[in-house]
Design a protein around this nucleic acid. Structure first.
Lengths: 197, 197
DNA sequence: CTGGTGAAATAGCGTTGCTATGCAACATTC
DNA sequence: GAATGTTGCATAGCAACGCTATTTCACCAG
């Protein structure tokens, strides 16, 4: 019976939010400004995402999706080490092309749903507000973070696969398994990018 | 001739801000709430710090100062490796005792004074506002970040010194110097804490 | 004692995220 | 095809945010 939600509006919101983040900075990614850019009302953000925090989270997920696409576009040659290097270049290039999105993905604080409260005070105003927003999909934020985690892990897997090929080719030794090695490489690359920003 | 600024107010602001951060969360660290807790007006924040961002920065510096005190309180025994371990325990304990302060110090984004703009858009609203806040002490924020950096580096030096003793005692080998080793250790500890939060 | 300087108090501005309400569009049902 | 009811989106308004303009008055120099 109900009127169906327009997926184009949702896509436009994410798209425009990413563009604002990249060209105008994080401080301009506000509810009204975004709605005006998309040409819709502020309510669309709430019907599609539930709030600005959830939207920002979704933009992060989209950022990971694009990063994964960038990494997937790297060709696989016979030289796995060269591939790994190309992966690193693609990673830093992507970070350099939209530094604000990279900030949002890695450097900024995320509205973590607080799975375990520290148990000191107990107000937690915003979290409580989100939890009590609706009864039906009150765990919307948890689902979104799961999405984000899945996407980021998928991105990581690409790196793991590349390092595994390096190890299999006998080019690397792997003390602690390929995942630890990939984590170290990723950490180093991230450190470079973070320093650059 | 002028009325002299009260240092007690400044200290109370930092103290109360740290307490709010620890017991009520970062979202409750607002201008009005802080002023009410201290029992002063909102203007005190501006006369003493220049704004909320600068105050948050100062709270971070104070956090580093306390962390340094925690680390300095660790006794130096004959076993440098045990000392290093104790240092790590003190670090994680400090982080666990005030997780919000730790977040503010390491995980949250800081209002970086943007020494080099990325050169994409050019609004940078907040930064411009802070820069143009006053003519006399317009570089107040730069001085504060220098303070913070100095304090954090001093904290790091404690770790470097401990690892150096380990190396000198022949307990560790140091590929790349004690600083690189200390950075790796600190990174690992930080990773553990960040994961825990 | 007097004068002026500057810290602190009050009030208000513009903006923020969010919510309450109203309307119109769609999918379902007969 | 018409009726119906559920739902997406628009409008208006709220409380709270950081910040600023203005005023008050406590302080110290002379």
């Amino acid at each position: 019976m109900p009127r169906v939600a327009d997926p184009a509006v949702r896509a436009a919101l994410i798209e425009s939010a990413a563009r604002i983040l990249a060209t105008e900075g994080a401080s301009r990614l506000t509810l009204r400004h975004l709605a005006q850019q998309v040409g819709t009302s502020t309510m669309a953000v709430y019907t599609h995402f539930g709030g600005m925090d959830a939207l920002r989270l979704e933009v992060c997920t989209e950022g990971f999706r694009r990063l994964a696409a960038h990494l997937a576009a790297v060709a696989r040659t016979d030289d796995p080490v060269a591939d790994l290097f190309a992966l690193g270049v693609a990673y830093t290039t992507n970070a350099r092309e939209n530094p604000h999105l990279y900030r949002a993905m890695f450097l900024d604080r995320l509205p973590v749903p607080a799975p375990v409260d520290v148990g000191l005070g107990a107000p937690a105003g915003r979290t409580a507000a989100v939890d009590g927003a609706d009864g039906a999909d009150g765990d919307q934020m948890a689902a979104i973070t799961a999405d984000l985690m899945e996407e980021s892990l998928a991105t990581f897997e690409v790196l793991v696969e590349a390092t595994t090929r390096c190890v299999q080719a006998g080019r690397f030794t792997d003390p602690g398994g390929p995942r630890a090695l990939a984590a170290q490489l990723w950490g180093a690359t991230h450190g470079i990018v973070a320093l650059e920003l």
